[in-house]
Structures are given as C-alpha cells and as structure tokens.
Design a protein around this nucleic acid. Sequence first.
DNA 1: TAAATATTTTAGATTTGTCTAAAATTATTT
DNA 2: AAATAATTTTAGACAAATCTAAAATATTTA
Lengths: 222, 222
Amino acid sequence: MEANFSVTEENYIKAIYHLQKADGNVGTNEVAAELNTKAASVTDMLKKLKQKKVLNYEKYHGFSLSSQGRKIALGIVRKHRLWEFFLVEKLQFGWDEVHAMAEELEHVSSKKLIDKLDDFLGNPKFDPHGDPIPDVNGKMVALPQVNLTDLPVNQQAQVSSVGIQSTALLELLKHKQIAIGTQLQVKKQFAFDHSIEIKIKGHAAFIISQQLAQALFVQVME
Amino acid sequence: MEANFSVTEENYIKAIYHLQKADGNVGTNEVAAELNTKAASVTDMLKKLKQKKVLNYEKYHGFSLSSQGRKIALGIVRKHRLWEFFLVEKLQFGWDEVHAMAEELEHVSSKKLIDKLDDFLGNPKFDPHGDPIPDVNGKMVALPQVNLTDLPVNQQAQVSSVGIQSTALLELLKHKQIAIGTQLQVKKQFAFDHSIEIKIKGHAAFIISQQLAQALFVQVME
DNA sequence: TAAATATTTTAGATTTGTCTAAAATTATTT
DNA sequence: AAATAATTTTAGACAAATCTAAAATATTTA
C-alpha cells in the first residue's frame, strides 16, 4: 500500500525537507529558487501535497512537512545517498561528479531494491560527502562535529556546540550574532594570526580570531 | 551533443525495436498493445519520432526504425540488460523479479554511468535471461541456437534456421506456415512419440512430429 | 472489383506540471 | 495606523502525453 508520488512531487518534498532543516521557516520563493521554477508553481504543488497529507499548509500562512512527509523525504535522502556511495565506492566516480546521477537514481521506486543495495554496500553510515545515510527505518547517525578551525573553505556548516562555557565567550558570540544553529562558511584563513573570515547567511563577511574559532564546533551540511 | 529523449519516447523506440526484430512488419496496434496504450497515441508519437529522425514513417504505409533509431534502441537495451545483470549478480534478486526494476533504471541517462557499470560487472555478454548485452558500440553476440526439441515449454523463441535442406521439409513448413523468423512457443511435449504441441502468434496451437521438430533451430527471445 | 472488415489517422478533450500577469494578503516602514 | 513593499495566490494559457469517437485509408473476402 505504498503511496505513489511523481518524480516532481518527490523533488518538492525533498527540497522542502532540506530547506526546512536549514532554515526552519521556508517560503514559496525559496522553494522555487531551489527547484528552478516559479512561486506560482510552488503554490499549485503545495495544494496537491496538502491533499496527499504530506504537508501542513494553510494558505498565506506557510507550510511544513507532516510526519508522513518527513518519512517520505528521508526515504528519498536514503536513496540519494546510497546511490552516491555506490557510484563512488563501486563505480569509481569522483565524489564531485555523482550528485546529478544520484538525483535520477533516487526516483527509482522499489524499496526492496534500495534495501538490497544497502546490504550490498555494507550498510554504510555516511555518503561520500560525509552526510549521514538514513537506515531502513529512517534513522540516521548525527553528523560528526568539526572544529571551526578545521572546516574547509566554502563548506556550509552549522554551529553545533561551543568548547568553553564562559560568560566572556557568550558575550562575544552574542555581539557577533553567532548562536547554536547559525549557518556559516569559512571564506578565508589568514596564516599570520590564524584568524579566519566567515560569512553568515544574510550578513556581510567578517573576521574572527583564532581563539574564538577554536571554541566553536560545527556540523558540516550537505 | 547527445540527443535527448523523454522516458516515453525511449519506451516507444524500445518497443518498436523489439517488435520489429520479432515480426519484421509492425503496426500501430501491436505497439499500442505492447505499451498498454491506444493506436491513436501511437500515431501521435510516430509523427514526433519521425521529426526527430528516429523513424522512417509515411502515414498509412508503415514505419521502421532509422539507423539512428536502432542505435538509440541498442543503447536502451544495453542499459536494461546490464542493470538486470547487476540486480541478479550483485544484489541477489531472482531473475524473475528484475524486469520491472530494470525498466526504470534503463532510463537513467548518463552513458558514462552505464559504461562504468559495465566494467564493474566484468563486461558480461549475456543477461540473466540469456539475452545478449550490446557492448559500448552496440555490438552484441549472436544468440546461441537451440534445437526445437530442447526448447523449454512456454519459452518464446524464433525460428532461426532449418537443419535439413530438403524440398519435402520446405513443403511441410509452408503448409504449417512456419518460416525463418516465425515466433513460437512449445506448449506440450508428448512422451509417447516425442511429438510436440507448438503455438504460433495469432494461430491456434497444433502438433508437429519429432522429425520436424528435430529439423528446426530456434533462438530464445526475451 | 465492389463490399465488408481491419487498420490508421484526425479532431477535440483531459491531465500534469508549468508559466505570466494580475489580485490578494501579509510584513515593513515611516 | 497608513502607505509601501514583499510575498503568496488566483486566473487563464500552454506543452506533453494521453484518451474516445469519428473519419480516412488499406486490406481482405466474396
């Protein structure tokens, strides 16, 4: 009795899942940008996905995946990441070339196929980009944390914890508008004093000291 | 510069390829039956495929794949059979369960992917059903011939040659409407006199003698 | 070869996913 | 809180692939 979704519907579900995870609050324009389509088309699809019980949606008041929708999204993410693993580990592709192929393969339906593939690959926990692979039940391992000083340049990441429990640190973080969950990228690393330039979504880039960077841990994002 | 075909177009090309191979002369109704659609839809698609130079087509006077169309068809067959091989050999599926999955996988586009898959599988020459797999250049090994007396019951096959060059045999074959290319299945084998009951497409089943069966060689079909 | 039958094609409608342009609603400024 | 700006939704149209019913053509039969 598995519900059936078109490739287009699956792409919407996946896009909303990823944007929601990154942003919390997602709008039609963001979804449209992600899928190279227009806000009007997104609205049309929102209505359909609401009817299919995949979305909570009240018009003009936003939308979010239902628990069923989240389950479907995890299934697609699982397929995507397992195929990426297969392409890199078995077919010897570079991890930079596999995304587009996995976008196609993830819509091949059979759950039995993907479960057998999972076994064949040895039930890997992370895909070649370091993203966790959901298991048969949709559970996935938490992303390993990385110190901000070790984050590769331009890698999108999310602040996940701080290494020091001090009021002084908290004050500084507050001033720089950094908090748990803040998304950032490292833009430059300066050898002289090990300071780094970071960029937070919607803000101008700015530089933080080595001491501060060492106190921050992040999770890499897709 | 690879031309781009929709999944639907690819399915038409593949269906026409298979029917043409089996039948020589193919009509819209046959294609419609193969694809679970209607003759009118087939006509629409024929026009489109003619425009794309995949088909030779004059309305009311039949159609056949162009050499370009044949090349495309072979590419699809190659994908289909390599995926079937993968599913059976690597993922441990039974060869009776893989057809539907391969139908989906064959439309995943990248040629590079399929060539790497081919290498990964060790460049197999036959799929799990015994059908030959076209290589990178579309070449495939000819199907081994089987004597009709050795053909398993219900296996679809095509008469490929006769073992005796006699007028008497020819007369009999003509009368029974059997020729090179005729598609048939063995329906029953009678132990008493080793006669067998065969069924030719569009005809009622009938019985042929052991002597006649021994004179006929067939190629197994998909 | 003319009539009957079968096949193929056209005409017009339907569904899915998309678009543009305009209208409705919500959010932000001042 | 009005005015302005941004976002979201509707209305109406379009392309792809399909359908049904009717018309055109080809084939078979008598």
